[in-house]
Structure formats: structure tokens, C-alpha cells
Write a protein that binds this DNA or RNA. Structure first.
Lengths: 205, 205
DNA sequence: GATGAAACCTACGCGTCCGTAGGTAGAAGG
DNA sequence: CCTTCTACCTACGGACGCGTAGGTTTCATC
């Protein structure tokens, strides 16, 4: 008989199951994850998970929620103060720091939610929405076309997340450098943006 | 007995199965897709699919390959000639046109590949790699830091794909307008990029 | 040391899904 | 009319995964 692991309090057990869930969900994706694998990793039997989270979907919801909360909090802190450009770079750096330090959480957010119900394509589109709101306010104040603000908001988030995904495979150069480049690109792009961009297709040579 | 559907030639049947497969894979994702649902939609029985494609994974591979080929061809054509900025905007427009006209294909490319084996996070990272190569050449020629080129390459692809995902949910404004905005952002950003971007963190106030 | 609750287990029912075995129906050529 | 080839079918084996029923161990408290 293998030596029984010590019993844990309810909340401690919850935490260890969440950790295991994040680990497995990140690698296999929601659909391909089996509750049994999570149980095995958390060194518990299946019913414990059902006891605490009601099922696979319940656990997934908790994991996602926690992760989402964490990123949003971190980014909010980072862009809370400073000049605009500073806030931009700090925001990018905060996100990339999350990518670096919590790759499993990032993988989950970047992947798809459970296909059922027809939710959003990616959890991150929610983040894009928030950034878009910030941009809409700024565009109105600056005399730009507010209708176009979501384009830039989502472009920014897409930029950072996609580079983040790439970075996790290469892990080089250091994220500080990456953040600097991205911030420079976005800042220069926004800074020199015409009030009403026109297509080169509508301009004669 | 329901009137039997007319028999099809092997290649015609293949095509109809590919269509059905793309449809279902796009909505459910790879894991959650059942071969039976594809068969049902293609109005065939399961063994026909196994006859033609060897199995679920085989069909998926064919669908992805076809889609990937199509996008790459379209973008290549779009950026084949013209001034740099023209090529940029035409490339973005070509991609967004694909998103608009082939939403199912786009959904598949944007989602995850079969988790098994540990392939790439998204099929689109492959596209990011190609763009990065173009950027690397251009950076070398222009005296910029070539090591940073992949950052910009992936940033660009991320920008466009993420905006594309958002656009599919809103379908507004018209893609031509979206392409113009994105191209303006990217162009202005790249145009005014310092040779060696420095972090604002390293500069005194 | 009894009692009760909380943590945890083994074992199974039930559905679903992949892939295949083995046979039928229609067309093409002798 | 008969053979044969190709498209296509029904029906099933085997595996796996979700969620639950019902019992067992540990711990605190009286």
C-alpha cells in the first residue's frame, strides 16, 4: 500500500485541483481534457472534483475566471498612471510578463472556450473590447473617427497576444526588449495617424 | 424508402465531403467534431469518409491544407507588386477578404490544430513566420536590427487576424475601410520607427 | 471512546465516438 | 444476360469519458 497523502482542507484541495486543471487544460485544450487526468495530476479521485466544482465545465469556468482576473488586474495596474506612451509600454510589458510567468494560463486564454453555447471565439476578445473602450474615449477627445477606435483596440491586443504566442516558442529576446519594440510600433503608428486615413487605392499616383 | 441520392464520382464525393468537413470543423473545433456529423451533412455514411480520407485526422489535414494554400496564394498575389505601402494595404485587404468570404476556413485556421503531437499553437503562426522572413530581409537592407524583425512580422499578422476575428462578429465597417486603418497604423508605425527603439524606462524624464 | 462531519475512495452505468467487417446496388463491358 | 468493379450501406466491436452511488477513513468534539 502506498503511503496515503495527507488530507487537505477544502480550500487547499480546491487550490490544488485548480492548479492541476490549469496545467492539463493548457496542454490538451478543453475538449480533449479528461477529468480523470486532472484528478490523477492532483492526486485525487474523480468524485472529489465533482464535489468541488460540479464537473468539467465548472472547473474550467473557475480556472478561466481566475486567470482573466489576474491579467486584467495586472494590466490595469500597469497603465494606471504616467504619460500615454509610458502607459502603452507598461501595459505591453505587463501582458508579456504574464505570458512569460504564467504560460499555462495564457495558453488557456488564447485557446477557444468550450464550443457549446456559441460564446466568443477567444477569451481575449473580451480584453480587446476593453481596450477598444479606452480608445473610443481617446479618439473622441482627439477629434478622430470614434467609429474606427475598435479597429485599433483589437489591433493592439492582437499584436501583443500574437507576439506573445510566438515568444513562448522562441523565448528570446527578453520581454523587456519585445515590449519596447511593440510599444514603439504602436506608438509611432498612432502618433502619426492621419485624422481620417485614406486608402492609397483612392489616391492617384 | 427515401429516394436514393444520385451516385457521385469519387472526386465529386471527395469535394462534397471536404465541404461538409470544413463546415463542421469550423463550428465545433477538431476534438468536438464527430465523423458522423460530417457524414450526415455530406449525405453519406461514415465508411465513405474512411474510404476517401483514412479517418478524421486525414480529412482534417486535407481541409487545413487546402485552406492554407488558398490564403497564402491570395496574399502572395496581393503583395506581388507595387510600392511597399501599397503592398501592405493590399495584403491586409486580401486577408480580410478571405475572412469575409470564407469564414469557416478562417475559423479553422484560427483555431488549434489537433492537440496531439504538440504541433503549433495556431496554424497562423506559420503565416507569421513567412511575413517575418520578408521583414528580416527588409530590415537588413534598411539598417535596422534584423533580430527584431520577427517581432514586427508576428505583430502584423496578429493585428490583422485578431481584427479579422473581431470583424466577423460585427461585420462593420466594410473591410476596405478596416484594411485602410490597419495599413495606416502599421505603415506609420514602421515608417517612423527609430533604428534602435529605446524603452522609455531607460530615458530620463 | 463514542459521535458526527468532512474528506476521500472504488466501482459502475450510460452515452458517445472511432474505425471496420461484411454485404448491397447500380453501372460498364463482354 | 452475366460478370465485375465501384460507390455505398447497415451494423457492430471496442474504447473512452462523464458523472454518480454508496461505502470507508480520518479528524475534531463532546
Amino acid at each position: 500500500m502506498p503511503p496515503r497523502a495527507p488530507r487537505l482542507s477544502a480550500s487547499a484541495r480546491r487550490a490544488s485541483i485548480i492548479d492541476a486543471g490549469r496545467f492539463v487544460f493548457a496542454r490538451r485544450g478543453y475538449e480533449a481534457t479528461s477529468v480523470e487526468e486532472i484528478a490523477e495530476r492532483a492526486k485525487v479521485s474523480k468524485p472529489v472534483i465533482y464535489e468541488h466544482f460540479g464537473g468539467k465545465e465548472g472547473l474550467y469556468a473557475v480556472v478561466v475566471d481566475r486567470e482573466m482576473d489576474y491579467v486584467v488586474r495586472r494590466i490595469s495596474e500597469a497603465i494606471a498612471q504616467g504619460e500615454p506612451r509610458e502607459r502603452l509600454e507598461h501595459g505591453a510589458l505587463a501582458f508579456l510578463t504574464y505570458v512569460k510567468d504564467h504560460p499555462d494560463g495564457f495558453a488557456i486564454l488564447a485557446h477557444d472556450a468550450p464550443a457549446a453555447g456559441g460564446g466568443m471565439l477567444s477569451l481575449l476578445s473580451d480584453l480587446g473590447e476593453r481596450v477598444s473602450e479606452v480608445f473610443t474615449a481617446a479618439f473622441k477627445a482627439g477629434g478622430y473617427d470614434a467609429r474606427a477606435a475598435p479597429i485599433y483596440g483589437h489591433a493592439l491586443v492582437g499584436m501583443v497576444t500574437f507576439v506573445g504566442q510566438w515568444w513562448t516558442t522562441v523565448r528570446k529576446p527578453p520581454i523587456e526588449e519585445v515590449a519596447t519594440h511593440i510599444a514603439a510600433l504602436a506608438w509611432m503608428g498612432l502618433r502619426h495617424l492621419p485624422k481620417r486615413p485614406t486608402s492609397i487605392r483612392n489616391r492617384p499616383r
